[in-house]
Design a protein around this nucleic acid. Structure first.
Lengths: 336, 336
DNA sequence: AACATAAGGACAACCGATTGCGCAGTAGAG
DNA sequence: CTCTACTGCGCAATCGGTTGTCCTTATGTT
């Protein structure tokens, strides 16, 4: 079975022999580089189409010093609700990479253990790396810099000279918060996730910036970071309600979903008794009644953008150091 | 930047020259194959350790007709709650593959569109394929068979001659159901997911088989398949309760979680008013009060097993056509 | 001491592509 | 009619490894 599989590989030499020409001519016909007769070129192209010949990317890669692979570093320790986001991100990367005949090699970084990433990079198995997300002190970034492999980070980081693709969470959270303040809300609470994630820190800052600008007071007692479990969220919600919050700002879809579940269980009605908004929208919230005010981003666009940027770097094209993608503020009935 | 990166690649020839020996000697020292002097071998090994030389797997692959990659076909359209399962599965594959210096190439099959998988396989970018899950009429399976690439499926399938690694869902569901019958439950309802997934069909059959064996009646009105949204689950739960169900059997963690949420909202208490059990346990259920009776599987073990089996196939070692991994019945307070 | 044998390592072909160089043939210019 | 220039294509080196073959020593046997 294995032999048969290998047997029916067509090589460039087979094509050349069948057509009575040399390997180099076939190669040039396919790539279009170098001098080649129009007629010969067409003969080759029609032959390889008919016989389903595809240049072996391993051999091609060897002679071009390319691998035709890029490494997607998967945030393996991410929370369950974060997974669909990363999966869509990766889908964008896969799409953009496929368009250039590139493939995606999985690099997993569980619990900040970058040994797998190191193996892939030091083995020269990839031409570049895309970091699925950034942590505050991300071990993989200094490693990637030192190894000199081209890479792009999805998300922001404080490390210098790192090419970053991100949504403008600061601006988005600032804008959403400002809008809610305009609507008359004066007392907010923030229920947030892992403060080790750059995105969470940034959202917090955007939120606080809006409050400061509009001179709305908030104390640390109204800010609940590192809510990682449903229990954490429930405790935060209880405290926030007791403190007299008018609006709960949830840092992401998972937290928002847990908050809503808690409120419904306690028969606290939205938006009559309490308003609620989320800094990230997903299908977790999309079917909710009432509909939820939230910020909407496009994870797939992030992935596509990151991949295209990486290709630019690989091709020696100058790229912007930090690209900020757009977002959408969706005002729904949860903040009416 | 890109140039520097390429510059510091150490090749086998560099090593050979530095040691004043030939490439082949270095190669044999590393692989241990062929005749090589003990002393020379140690000189080479210590040199490459010190200079951090690693054989280029692209070149190695070219001469060995291997890619050192296997393709993980990700079920991209899977439901959100299913993602952690597949991610752990894949983590198992990654671990087992790394041990053999293999890497994982992402193949995505969204909405039964296998073009990406086709590109990877026909480009000879992988030595084998692992299918993350099986559908009833899975387009990728006939393609993989036809292409003659070695592959292993996680999950079961009706296609002939496919190597399958699966948990014994039939036996597990049969066993759990039987136990509950022994405990005196006489009226069940089944809330199930996508009937296009082999695993869901199998779980249903295992469940029904236990009922039949123990001569417990059930009608189609008590079986709710294709519950894909929370609303579907809520409707099913309502109907089941109205029909006088004593125990709700949930086909997976997502459905069970939605069912519990619905029951809590309606203040139906578990297990006093209704008992509940799940055919799949996950962190979605793990923190619940009351604790939930459920079947436990190890997704990582599935991945490891699938990968090792694939390596056996690649190495020409005979493998079992169908491997069934174990499960655990966890009786908790939700069925007391 | 003579010879068979085995061990250690070098050489070169090979995996399947790309690409610089050079040669033959044709066409256009003077 | 010759000279130049260009076109189309083949040859061979190269990418970085593996591996079969052969040559040179060292070892052991009688």
């Amino acid at each position: 079975m294995c032999n048969e599989y290998i047997e029916d590989k067509v090589t460039i030499e087979d094509v050349a022999n069948a057509l009575g020409i040399s390997k180099s001519t076939v190669s040039r016909a396919i790539s279009g580089k170098g001098r080649i007769g129009k007629e010969t070129r067409e003969r080759v192209l029609s032959y390889i189409k008919e016989h389903n010949y595809k240049p072996n990317p391993i051999a091609k890669g060897l002679s071009e010093s390319k691998t035709y692979n890029i490494c997607w570093v998967d945030p393996g320790d991410s929370s369950m609700t974060a997974l669909p986001f990363f999966q869509r991100c990766m889908a964008g990367v896969v799409d953009a990479a496929s368009a250039e005949n590139y493939d995606i090699l999985m690099g997993v970084v569980y619990d900040d253990n970058i040994s797998h990433l190191k193996r892939i990079v030091s083995n020269h198995k990839v031409d570049g790396v895309i970091l699925g997300r950034t942590l505050i002190n991300d071990e993989s970034i200094p490693y990637l810099i030192e190894s000199k492999v081209p890479f792009v980070a999805i998300g922001s980081t404080d490390y210098k000279d790192v090419v970053q693709i991100d949504n403008d969470h600061f601006k988005a959270c600032n804008e959403l918060t400002s809008i809610l303040i305009m609507k008359g809300i004066k007392k907010f609470a923030l229920i947030g996730g892992d403060s080790n994630h750059v995105v969470n820190r940034t959202r917090r800052e955007g939120f606080l910036h809006a409050l400061k600008e509009q001179k709305i007071d908030i104390t640390d007692d109204d800010i609940f970071m590192n809510c990682l479990s449903d229990e954490d969220v429930e405790r935060a919600t209880d405290t926030a309600l007791r403190n007299g919050a008018e609006c709960l700002m949830c840092m992401d879809d998972g937290i928002c979903s847990a908050t809503i579940a808690k409120l419904k269980r306690d028969e606290v009605s939205i938006p009559e008794d309490i308003k609620i908004a989320s800094f990230y929208n997903s299908e977790l919230l999309s079917n909710n009644q009432p509909t939820i005010t939230a910020l909407q981003y496009d994870p797939k666009e992030l992935g596509i953008n990151a991949c295209k940027t990486l290709f630019d770097i690989l091709n020696g094209i100058e790229v912007e150091q930090k690209v900020m993608l757009s977002y959408e503020v969706q005002l729904k009935s949860s903040t009416q």
